Amino acid sequence: MTARSACGGSLRPTLALGLVALAAGTGNALGSLLGAWLRPRGPELTVTAMLLLAGCATTAAALWYGTVTVLAVAGAAGLAASLGKLSLDALIQRDVPESVRTSAFARSETALQLSWVAGGAVGILLPLNGALGLSVAAAVLGTVLLWTLRSLLRVGVRPRPAAARVA
């Protein structure tokens, strides 16, 4: 595999991998910083926005595969992972009864870890083709986004009252 096929440009593979790791780490750090600021807006909205952001970045990278779009996907993935985890924790803290909250946290952590394993397995099983892999990822993200929107509309999520936001 050449550097050109690894990241869509003429970068050496180790430099390209380093840039992708830097973009993902930067997105993750930015997500941690934005978490406190976005908390009053409700975790449902944050999760939906992060799915949309990651889906758009992944779709763009699948269509225009190159160094810049792959870095955008890595940054969006880091940001979405960080804010998604914070939002999931907030939902569990808010909506799950205290008697089963510990179990819910353990189950959510297990599901997140299994998702990482499943994503890695898909990456290993697909042929080494960046555009194909990103197309599969975009399709999965689009499906999850539609499922999330359908679920939100079905349960009728409404913004919390101002008094509940402060707590």
Rank of each mutant, 00 (worst) to 15 (best):
A90S: 14
L83Q: 12
L19D: 03
D89F: 09
G156Q: 00
A74Y: 01
I124M: 08
L52W: 10
R94L: 14
G84A: 05
V117H: 07
P161H: 13
A3Y: 14
A80E: 01
L112C: 11
R94E: 15
L71R: 03
T67D: 06
V70E: 00
A118N: 08
R101Y: 08
L132Y: 14
L88V: 13
S115Q: 03
V100T: 15
P43I: 03
M1Y: 14
R41Y: 15
N28M: 04
D95V: 06
G119I: 03
T102M: 13
A121H: 03
A121K: 06
A23L: 02
P127R: 14
G119D: 00
M1N: 11
G27Y: 00
R160A: 15
A81T: 00
V47E: 01
G84Y: 05
P97M: 04
L53W: 03
R107S: 13
Y65T: 09
L114T: 09
G66R: 02
M50A: 02
S82C: 09
T2Y: 07
P40R: 10
G66Q: 05
T59K: 12
A23S: 02
F105T: 11
V157Y: 09
A24S: 11
L33D: 07
A77F: 01
T67L: 15
C56L: 15
G18L: 04
A81M: 01
S10E: 14
E109M: 12
S82K: 05
A60I: 11
A60R: 13
A24V: 01
A138W: 14
L30R: 00
G18Y: 09
T2C: 08
L153M: 13
L51H: 03
T59Q: 15
T26M: 00
N129L: 07
S135Q: 11
P13H: 02
G35C: 04
V96Y: 12
V140G: 06
T46N: 09
S32Y: 02
L141G: 00
A3Q: 12
A76N: 03
T143R: 07
L86I: 13
P40V: 07
S103F: 12
V140H: 01
V100C: 06
L141E: 04
S108I: 12
A24G: 04
L38E: 07
T67N: 04
T58L: 01
S151I: 04
R165Y: 07
W64E: 10
A164E: 15
S99L: 09
G18Q: 03
